[in-house]
């Protein structure tokens, strides 16, 4: 087995092991309510972080509008699931949930293509600012959408709440009365799908092309790589996965509002990616998990909670960039000692 395969298996193994440990703890009643309630959000944030890492780390484009795709996925997924359940009378939750994830991914993918066409012509800072703007546009558009279910038909309104039937998405009030369908098992499956897609994409011919473009656009173009095509591939894949995560998120709470998916959420996910290591998929998973759980662990600090959280973030950032610690952690991995030691000395 090549080193790469071992590395990949390690990532999958880690996620599977964590899943089994959680399931055993739930079965034994050893897990606190507080942690149990966070399992699905953790899965969502892992998928968000891994998919953003594909854009930021692998494709090298700083995207600040990732929450926008999550929001598209969340709303389209919720509408799909509730329409199936209330409109068409599908009682099987698994079917509704799966359909919601697929719809969420599809709509976010469409949004990804539409946004990708103009955005990916830009580079560097300009690209970051435009993705940020698109994230905000998506949020503001979502604030104006009204959707109601009447019998088996869906009604759409834009800035117009007067629709027949029962309002499902009520503009700024968001979707209310959503049935809670998300399960931890589905969250785990989604994380595994994300890892399969992202890790295999990175390892494929296309993935190497994407990284070549990141490293040197001119060199990549000179050997005949279609820059737009490969950039779009990474960007849209990332959007689809974020949309699926959004659908899972939306169906975990009985209400979602567009204001949840603002700039802050995009930055939060970017923080996961940066702290986990840009381009490091396993790091994203660990960072997303720890940083989602951390604020809850800090409840003991009461009023100083958010302050402590910020300090911990800074400490983690310093620690992960500390050469001594890096050498120590790399030393744990077999066969990497020499190269890591060299890196540490730099």
């Amino acid at each position: 087995m090549s080193k790469k395969t071992i590395d990949k298996l390690l990532t999958f193994g880690m996620v599977i092991a964590a899943f089994i440990v959680c399931q055993v703890m739930i079965a034994n009643g050893a897990m606190s309510r507080s942690l149990r309630g966070q399992l699905i959000p953790i899965c969502v944030y892992i998928v968000m972080a891994v998919s953003l890492n594909l854009t930021v780390g692998i494709s090298g484009e700083l995207s600040l509008g990732h929450a926008g795709f999550m929001s598209v996925g969340a709303f389209s997924g919720v509408v799909m699931a509730m329409w199936l359940k209330n409109g068409l009378g599908v009682s099987n939750t698994l079917i509704c949930l799966s359909a919601a994830l697929v719809t969420g991914g599809l709509f976010a993918g469409i949004a990804g293509v539409l946004i990708g066409i103009p955005v990916l012509r830009l580079r560097g800072d300009y690209l970051a600012i435009v993705t940020l703007a698109f994230g905000e546009i998506i949020r503001n558009v979502m604030n104006c959408i009204y959707i109601s279910i009447e019998g088996s038909s869906l009604h759409f309104g834009f800035v117009n709440p007067k629709l027949p039937g029962k309002l499902l998405v009520n503009g700024p009030a968001g979707a209310t009365g959503v049935a809670k369908m998300s399960t931890f098992v589905m969250g785990f499956v989604l994380v595994m799908i994300t890892l399969l897609v992202v890790l295999n994409l990175i390892d494929s011919r296309s993935g190497r092309a994407i990284m070549a473009i990141r490293d040197s656009r001119i060199a990549a173009e000179s050997v005949g790589l279609n820059v737009t095509k490969y950039k779009m591939m990474a960007f849209v894949t990332s959007a689809v996965l974020a949309g699926m995560a959004g659908a899972l998120y939306g169906l975990n709470f009985s209400t979602i509002t567009a204001s949840k998916f603002k700039f802050d959420t995009s930055i939060l996910v970017l923080v996961f990616v940066v702290l986990g290591g840009i381009g490091n998929i396993r790091g994203s998973i660990i960072a997303a998990t720890l940083l989602t759980v951390l604020p809850e662990l800090l409840r003991a600090f009461s009023d100083y909670r958010m302050l402590v959280y910020a300090i911990v973030l800074i400490l983690v950032m310093l620690a992960t960039n500390n050469p001594t610690l890096r050498t120590f952690f790399s030393g744990l991995k077999p066969g990497k000692k020499s190269s890591a030691a060299k890196e540490g000395k730099q």
Binding site: R33, S34, R36, G37, T176, S254, T257
Partner: peptide
């Protein structure tokens, strides 16, 4: 809403028998 659910679970872990809250609308839903 996400943090409100966390807070809710947290107080139930503490042993809360009833909830006085939550303060704002969408977390409360």
């Amino acid at each position: 809403p996400e943090k409100a659910i966390n807070a809710f679970n947290d107080v139930l872990d503490w042993g809360a028998q009833m909830i006085a809250g939550t303060v704002t609308t969408s977390p409360c839903i």
